[in-house]
Nucleic acid binder design. Structure first.
Length: 568
RNA sequence: UGGGGUGUCGCCAAGUGGUAAGGCAGCGGUUUUUGGGGCCGCCAUUCGCAGGUUCGAAUCCUGCCACCCCAGCCA
């Protein structure tokens, strides 16, 4: 199999820039970084950044830093630095000994801030938060420099050192770059470099009470690490000018460049930490790893594979246009892999009993079933067969429409790897609910072929009643009913438009006995139903399976059409 | 009456003056003991719109339109 999770052969604009820089000798090794802030869980949107950051460098023999952007002690937590590392590893990337924290550079960053002051390029401002906002002007109006901007270098240095020494309360002073309060780019209007925060930092403890801002810390951390290509998302385009200003005005000897690409959005879900948190707090999902969430921990729990996620990311390309990728594209990547790797098993999710009236009572036999038709080398297994079986309820219709060619009264179908059976009688209870089908089987069709060349139009999966293993099966679907949950009318809550069947839990499903002893983490295809994964809640004797993704289902499409036309 | 970006098939996305790649979805057919999968075929005379330059424009020029981002002591 060709590795679909490998780099795309068509180069995107970032890969082109890297190769040009290499060829022109502007850089000799590609060095990138993935810079998460440790204040939340990673979601599939991040996997695009991760795959691009690590992938582009790796392909070119370069390397990547995993750098936590921990410049804001009030929102960050070590618990996230662990979960983020686990997720990046799970996706299949390794940073070797290049784990870093922006806080590792606090001393250097501080030194360079003093250099900026000495060069007259930074000053201590003592405006309060509201005043700073007012002085910044608006998007269409120039700002105005602070009345504190003209302090002497000595005074600035003294004030800054006392800020560092903890002499002032939070918010009383800031260090700002002296750039241009009238710049049409708001980010260039004397951006803040340091703010006072008497807060405990998860790594530096109480050493600091001033913390650098992103616009200052990020470019210079890149410079310190020798990052050549600093890749980020579109909303930072305006920050690039500040990025360059700091790199050029501080005595670092590196020249990293920032490039921006569009972040990943997927239909039928939302992709921001804040909104995901809202879903949890509203009780709409069970937590960060609820399999309906787009977090990496949720995909992992649901049963998605890291290789499929990487293949998906590589399939969508890299560009600068905002977009929402069809979730089918992700599902396709997962099916493509599992079709090749997942063993096939039979499982009846919504059982309907079938009694073979001409099959001897008390008898059983074992029939050979292929493990994976895509890979004959995976061999075969034996599946027990007997007089009483279960088939899928939806595989029988008493009064079938033209296009339904599964089991119906008087109709003959094949039981996969077993026999042809014909439905002779429908048994119902007092409410008219079908409780049992009485059928006959043709002993000559053992294995599933008729010696007389007779054909059937359908093959059903089944499980022998006496041998069935019971399990709980959780069928997952997208959480939202609308492809773009956020496109709601004014005043409407985006959390309203939910898919009522995003989770359907089925108990007492009937599985073939080969599934009896599977462990957590086991993945297989339930024939004709989809790909499934043994959930972490699963225990021997109380198995729990998650549906990762369905199989493509032509009948479901026809059924939907028929219902739409009122013919069903 | 600011600045920075983006607009190519239903959804992604190549293309950078020589006459619209590819993937996903969809639709036919074929094969098939999964209505799965495989295989074959169809699916943009047209590139946000309007002009212009050119033998020739998605690509160059001009004007317009739409959408996204920027006024955190967040990142």
């Amino acid at each position: 199999m060709t590795d679909k999770s490998a780099a795309p052969e068509k180069k995107d604009f970032i890969r082109k820039i890297m190769d040009e820089d290499l060829e022109a000798g502007r850089v000799k090794t590609i060095v990138t970084r993935f810079p998460p802030e440790p204040n939340g869980m990673l979601h599939i949107g991040h996997s695009k950044a991760i795959v691009i950051d690590f992938g582009t460098a790796e392909e070119r023999g370069g390397y990547t830093y995993l750098r936590f952007d921990d410049t804001n002690p009030t929102t960050e937590d070590t618990m996230y630095v662990e979960s983020i590392q686990r997720d990046v590893h799970w996706l299949g990337f390794d940073w070797g000994d290049r784990l870093r924290f922006a806080s590792d550079y606090f001393d250097q960053l501080y030194e360079w801030a003093e250099v900026l002051i000495r060069d007259g390029k930074a000053y201590v401002d003592s405006l309060n938060e509201a005043e700073i906002r007012e002085h910044r002007g608006t998007v269409k109006q120039a700002g105005e420099r602070s009345r504190y901007a003209d302090r002497s270098i000595e005074e600035n240095l003294d004030l800054f050192r006392r800020m560092k020494a903890g002499e002032f309360p939070d918010g009383s002073h800031t260090l700002r770059a002296r750039i241009d309060m009238a710049n049409p780019n708001m980010k260039m209007r004397d951006p803040l470099i340091y703010r006072i925060r008497h807060a405990h930092h998860h790594r530096t403890g109480d050493k600091w009470c001033i913390y650098p801002m992103y616009d200052y810390a990020h470019p210079l951390s890149d410079a310190i690490e020798g990052i050549t290509h600093s890749l980020c998302t579109l909303e930072f385009e305006n920050n690039r000018e500040v990025y360059d200003w700091f790199v050029e005005n501080v005595p670092c000897n590196a020249r990293p460049r920032q490039y921006e690409f569009a972040r990943l959005n997927i239909s039928y879900t939302v992709m921001s930490k804040r909104k995901l948190l809202e879903l949890i707090e509203a009780g709409i999902v069970d937590g960060w790893d609820d399999p309906r969430m787009p977090t990496l921990s949720a995909y992992r729990r649901r049963g998605y594979t890291p290789t499929a996620i990487r293949a998906f990311v590589n399939s969508i390309g890299v560009s600068k246009a905002n977009s929402i990728v069809d979730k089918m594209q992700l599902e396709n990547a997962q099916r493509e892999e599992l079709n090749y790797t997942a063993p096939r098993r039979m499982a009846v999710l919504e059982p309907l009993k079938v009694v073979l009236t001409n099959y001897p009572e008390g008898e059983e036999e074992h029939l050979e079933a292929v493990n994976n038709p895509e890979r004959p080398e995976d061999g075969v297994r034996n599946v027990p067969f007997s007089r009483e079986l279960y088939i899928e309820r939806e595989d029988f219709m008493e009064d079938p429409p033209k296009k339904f060619f599964r089991l119906a009264p008087g109709r003959e179908v094949r039981l996969r790897y077993a026999y042809f059976i014909t439905c002779e009688e429908v048994v119902k209870d007092a409410n008219g609910t079908i409780t049992e089908l009485r059928c006959t089987y043709d002993p000559a069709t053992r294995g599933g072929d008729a010696p007389d060349g007779r054909k059937v139009k359908a093959t059903l999966h089944w499980v022998s009643a006496g041998h069935a293993v019971e399990a709980e099966v959780r069928l997952y679907d997208h959480l939202f009913a609308h492809p773009n949950p956020l496109s709601v009318k004014e005043g409407e809550d985006w959390k309203q438009n939910l898919n009522p069947t995003s989770l359907v839990t089925l108990k007492q499903c009937k599985l073939e006995p080969a599934l009896m002893e599977v462990d957590q983490g086991y993945r297989c295809q339930f024939e004709r139903k989809g790909y499934f994964y043994v959930d972490q809640d699963s225990k021997p004797g109380a198995l729990v399976f998650n549906r990762i993704v369905t199989l493509r289902d032509t009948w479901a499409k026809i059924e939907k059409q028929l219902k739409h036309q009122g013919k069903l």
